[in-house]
Design a protein around this nucleic acid. Structure first.
Lengths: 238, 238
DNA sequence: CGCCTATTTGAACCGGGTCAAGCATTGTGG
DNA sequence: CCACAATGCTTGACCCGGTTCAAATAGGCG
């Protein structure tokens, strides 16, 4: 992977949702800018591997990424979809220094890497940033635990509606209402916790029910809230 | 719930696995001791409710607690089992100040409560503690995401083996090898993501296969690693 | 001892996974 | 520019695992 140092300054970055979207005069920002590396990734390239050593923490500068665990028979479980500004690899810091998941580009990406040592130095010197990160973790944990329940209790129709809504909520839609990401039926299945055949079937049903519109492999969601109403029985507390 | 202030000093607490198990001369410790409240909970009492307001963060001084989300038809999904020293309520800090889950005593408990404001002050003034907490979150997140995959991919036999192992790993066994916690078949089902009938059936099978021994509702796990070998196909990276 | 609740076991039904065939789309090379 | 191969998507049919309903049994507690 070609890598360059300090190509885009954090202070000039457009990703305002990034953890490091900080006041310009911040000391932390200076430290980061001098130590980050930018990596270019082609579609389908891995950013890190499940079981691989932890280098540091990654931030998406541009592009889209899927994060997944591998299970039985190589079956993938997509754990999260990530967009510009999102953090990757923050799960690696626990006990052993090994990523428990893999991250793979679903389109060409630019990724910022901050090495572990630098990152921890930054946190040690900036308590507010630590707290901000902690709140982020709390939120991730909440979402993750909701998904445990959803996997355990939802039926296929609900799981697939939920998956489509995840894509919608993460990447949004283009001017014609089509989801801003091209995921294969297999990918959607890996996200929903089922297989590609069920995804096809349910999408056809949703199409017939006018909940979505299909055009080739592209999916249009005219009214996300109507689709979400399929899930109203899971009173959402989050 | 009867509550008293400062009954057991953190510096004298036996729970060495607690986040606040700190060097005696620590300033943080002093702050905590002056501000914590101890709550007594009877078996089956709630410590906090899903959807209820966040008061602060809780630590188990003694007793056992289940943490769960409620789903369709009041069905519960147990998200974690907690033992003395464990943290409760740390998921509440994200966006809205509402607990996304409930915590209920599964036996009589003593719980330490530290109010939100105090807790954040402590963290702001003790960067190392913040980092320690962050690592804890990373670990929780990792475990949680593993369970998403497990719920999506494991069959019932595996899910129930996994649930029994969770109980074993959290609470251990007594001198005769029986699990140190009395959970109903329903509870085990809520943990595994299935129903009480399947739990009964699978436990009977495990019993016949000599993987466990049943004596009334009590479960003996003579060799946890043998039971765990049922799950070897999920190559464990964590 | 007797009631009440939890557990076990059986049987029937159904959702969803799997296999397989047909169709559409994309890309490649002649 | 078309033919063909390769890949991904759709749909149907079948079968199995797991849920549900129901009845019998065991265990716990007054």
């Amino acid at each position: 992977m070609p890598a360059i140092r300090n190509a885009v300054k954090c202070s000039q970055c457009a990703n305002t949702n990034c953890l490091f979207s900080l006041p310009k005069e911040s000391h932390t920002l200076e430290l980061l800018e001098n130590h980050k590396t930018i990596i270019f990734c082609r579609k389908d390239q891995y950013i890190f591997y499940e079981g691989g050593p932890v280098n540091g923490i990654y931030f998406i500068l541009s592009g889209k990424v899927k994060i997944f665990k591998t299970g039985i028979g190589g079956r993938q479980q997509i754990v999260r979809l990530a967009k510009p500004g999102d953090i990757l690899g923050h799960r690696g810091f626990g006990g052993r220094n090994i990523y428990p998941i893999a991250a793979q580009a679903i389109e060409d990406c630019q990724i910022c890497l901050i090495e572990t040592g630098v990152f921890f130095d930054v946190l040690r010197n900036d308590p507010e940033l630590s707290l901000k990160l902690m709140l982020f973790y709390a939120d991730e944990l909440k979402n993750s635990e909701t998904r445990i329940r959803n996997q355990a209790q939802m039926n296929i129709r609900e799981k697939i509606a939920d998956a489509i809504l995840s894509i919608n909520d993460t990447y949004g839609v283009d001017e014609n209402g089509f989801l801003n990401a091209t995921l294969s039926r297999q990918d959607i299945g890996d996200l929903a916790g089922t297989n590609k055949e069920q995804v096809s079937r349910q999408l056809s049903e949703f199409n017939a029910d006018r909940l979505i519109k299909l055009e080739g492999k592209r999916i249009c969601v005219p009214d996300a809230e109507e689709l979400r109403s399929l899930l109203h029985i899971y009173e959402v507390v989050d």
